[in-house]
Amino acid sequence: MNEERKTLYEFTKGIIKENPVLVTLLGMCPTLAVTVLAQNGIGMGLATTFVLVCSNAVISLLKNVIPKAVRLPCFIVIIAGFVTFIDFIMKGFLPELHSALGVFLQLITVNCIILGRAEAFASRNTIGRSVLDGLGMGIGFTLALFTMGSVREILGLGSWFGMKIPYLCDNPMTIFIMPAGGFFVLGCLIALVNKIANRKPPMEISCDSCPNAAICKGQCKTQEGA
């Protein structure tokens, strides 16, 4: 029973408790850039989930083969391979979404969520748990992007998934679909999650899930320079 619950926790933790965007503050670049429409948010979220699950699975299988010193380049190549794959599929089947996401689809390669999970979880756990972890984190990421996209689309364009909302569509607040609105909505969402969870908000981006933490040891923030 206990074991089962633990396995289930690997899946559910990513959705709310350790939500990659709203709690651990990872993968902010795509979160801010593509969430002009709710639809784009879901597309980006699902593409990232796919890459996350596949790379977690492969990395957990290869964890004993990859030499420790060159693990980061190895992880990056595996991830980039899957990104190329999803890039092709999207170009073929969803050309509109592909052009809406633009270069950010290829930039999934350097999304810190994926590299962070590979380093912190998949390279230390079995394939089953790694896949569950990837799936949970991916769904959490998708949910966060969907929420961001919905808020920005409803307020900024007065529509939701293309459906017009009466009154709002005549008086859209265009600032919300501009870059500034992205920062603003994300800040408010993180604050809201803090309020609901009644938790002290993070003071800064932590080093816990930074893939470079082992090399840098937090020096990047405190270094005085020469």
Partner: peptide, 23 residues
Amino acid sequence: FPQAFKGVPATLIAAAIVSVSFM
């Protein structure tokens, strides 16, 4: 700031204002 906004949320909102100036 209000408790919930301290730290990263406040930073993000400041970034939003800087971004407005670049508009």
